[in-house]
């Protein structure tokens, strides 16, 4: 039950997790490794992206952060609470909220506002406070106007924003998005990313974003790459995305702008740093042109 004093919201050391595969008769078969000696440290208020291909163990890790799974080796502290101690489960789930992949399968109520209130009802928050916090949360994700709607009539991006509101209404210190953008269209993805970045910036909520989309990871303070249940790379987006070939070996790619810059650099253009966004690439190219004493690169 005891809480460890720490400024790190997540502190995991040498985590391992195995699960057993059952055959069609229900007999236990081989044991597969999902996490293998994972060390993870996240400071309060950070924005961390976790990348990795399907089956790399990133979703398993996400479920540990909310004590939905507990490690069978190593230790994991979330907000100072040991996840192995069953008495801490509800405190951990209050301090770390989760948003899952399928928007349809995580909305419980038939009205938007009732769904946002669900977690608070579970915590036993008094009715008047529930309403206040539901309103705050819905306004924070820009869904207040839709509070009376049925979730079935919302777009994918809107459903995920409702799910995020449901989490932040519980006033968590950390939100984990487990491939929450995977099933959305580009507009919906932008919506969700904009929302969590805003929460991270204004409310200092720790965000752990698990994704397949490299463009979403460029906004992170830190990127972690997983492969075969291990953490294989870690660093700032710039450090990570500069290693185009290494990422490819882990079955990942880099944002298109980064890849284009990398290709140009290989052809000998003077691009110094790793480029993450379109604007950085334009900047780098125009800067390069200027350095070569050419403010108007081309005579038209």
């Amino acid at each position: 039950m005891a809480r460890k004093k720490t400024d790190r919201i997540i502190e995991g050391h040498d985590l391992s997790f195995h699960y057993t595969v059952y055959d069609s008769e229900g007999n236990p078969g081989e044991r597969r490794t999902a996490l293998d000696g994972v060390d993870i440290d996240v400071q309060q208020g950070q924005f961390v992206a976790i990348l990795g291909h399907n089956g790399s163990g990133k979703s398993t890790l996400a479920r540990h952060l909310n004590a939905l799974l507990v490690p069978d080796g190593g230790t994991l502290y979330v907000d100072g609470y040991d996840t192995l101690d069953a008495g801490n489960v509800w405190k951990i789930r209050q301090s770390t909220g989760m948003v899952f992949q399928n928007p349809d399968n995580q909305i419980i109520a038939s009205v938007v506002e009732e769904d946002v209130g669900f977690g608070l009802e579970n915590q036993g928050v008094p009715t008047a406070d529930i309403w206040k916090r539901v309103e705050e949360a819905l306004r924070a994700v820009g869904m207040w106007k839709m509070r009376g709607r049925s979730p079935n009539r919302l777009s994918g991006g809107q459903k995920q924003r409702v799910a995020i509101a449901g989490v932040i209404a519980m006033h968590p210190k950390c939100i984990v998005l487990d491939e929450a953008t995977a099933m959305l269209d580009p507009g919906g993805r932008k919506e969700v990313i904009r929302t969590v970045r805003e929460l991270n910036r204004t409310e200092n909520v720790t965000v752990i974003l698990i994704t397949h989309y490299m463009e979403e990871a460029v906004f992170a303070d830190r990127v972690i790459v997983m492969d075969h249940g291990k953490v294989v790379m870690g660093g700032t987006p710039r450090e990570i995305f500069s290693q185009v070939e290494k990422l490819k070996s882990f079955r990942l790619d880099v944002p298109q702008a980064t890849l284009l810059a990398w290709k140009l650099k290989q052809r000998g253009l003077p691009i110094k740093d790793t480029v993450l966004t379109i604007d950085e690439l334009i900047e780098a190219l125009n800067h390069g042109a200027a350095e070569n004493d050419l403010t108007q690169p081309v005579s038209r």
Partner: peptide, 8 residues
């Protein structure tokens, strides 16, 4: 390709 990782 909905919901697949880059290699998929």
């Amino acid at each position: 390709t909905a919901g697949m990782d880059p290699e998929g």
